[in-house]
Design a protein around this nucleic acid. Structure first.
Length: 269
DNA sequence: AGGTTGACCTGGACGC
DNA sequence: TGCGTCCAGGTCAACC
């Protein structure tokens, strides 16, 4: 589900709600997929920890902890359908709840994930680092440098988290529309001007989406259970067959890198 | 080594 | 009602 703007929105919400609270008891479900660290290790690190805060790194949520044994981090990747829910202990347990942290404030933080593509892990003594650059802070020159030699379609390169960490299918399509570049174009064949437009388009679309609280395409909700609004501003994503908002041409859908890719055949070249 | 493809999961929408 | 098919915001192992 969540790309950079959605994870940023969730991180801000969780930080506001939970910073300073303490984790008392941890319950972990029986499904192994969401656990990138052993269940016993997650339980040991989280139990008794004080939550210093939440922030976003790439598409990961990072919860900084003051654990019993010292500084630690709880890393949450939401995959496609992962959700972090803050609720009262009386709230009915949703299907696919994989972890419940009971908090000193009397609330619970629950991790719910139907498809189980999400991942939970804990780190002690090492700072979590995303493999790629932050799209919001990488400069224009760095951006150009990352893509200029790639033989892969620009859409694939944008989705490659080892280059930029945080761009997913929605914002790849939306930024390519703003840059007027088709998703199948080979990255190395983009002109400097096109890469520049892509950089600007990506900065704009990410900033606007964060301001709108992210995009809710099916089930994304923020830490308060509220939907985002940016889906109302999508220019191409999931608008197959609808008229381009700039020129009126019919929005096309093709598969690139195994993912649906939406573009305007007239505006994008 | 870089690039491409399918597998991993569940559930919702749609057609018959 | 029910069954089959396709689709979904993400990654990663296994191939070329």
């Amino acid at each position: 589900m969540p790309e950079l703007p959605e994870v940023e929105t969730i991180a801000r919400g969780l930080d506001q709600k939970l910073a300073g609270d303490c984790i008392e008891v941890v319950w972990i479900g029986s499904k192994p997929e969401p656990l990138a660290s052993p269940a016993a290790e997650i339980e040991r690190v989280l139990s008794g920890s004080r939550i210093a805060g939440f922030r976003r790194v790439g598409k990961h949520l990072v919860c900084d902890l003051e654990a019993v044994s010292g500084a630690a981090q709880w890393i949450i990747h939401l995959g496609m359908t992962g959700r972090c829910v803050v609720c009262s202990p009386e709230a009915p347990r949703a299907r696919h709840t994989h972890l419940i942290a009971t908090l000193a404030s009397g609330r619970e933080l629950r991790f719910v994930d139907a498809r189980r593509f999400g991942r939970l892990l804990v780190l002690e003594g090492v700072e979590f680092a995303a493999p790629g650059d932050e799209p919001t802070t990488a400069g224009r020159e760095r951006f150009v440098q990352l893509f200029r030699r790639r033989k892969t379609p620009i859409k694939s390169a944008l989705l490659n988290q080892r280059l930029l960490a945080g761009v997913g299918n929605i914002y790849a399509d939306e930024s390519l529309f703003r840059a007027r570049v088709r998703p199948r174009r080979q990255a190395a064949r983009l002109t400097r001007a096109e890469l520049g437009r892509l950089y600007d388009g990506l900065q704009q679309v990410l900033a606007e989406a964060i301001a709108a609280g992210g995009s809710s395409v099916s089930d994304y909700v923020d830490a308060d259970g509220e939907s985002g609004l940016f889906q109302l501003q999508h220019k191409v994503y999931q608008r197959t067959g609808e008229p381009c908002l700039v020129c009126g041409a019919s929005i096309q859908r093709v598969i690139v890198a195994g993912r649906s890719s939406h573009y305007c055949p007239k505006c994008q070249r």
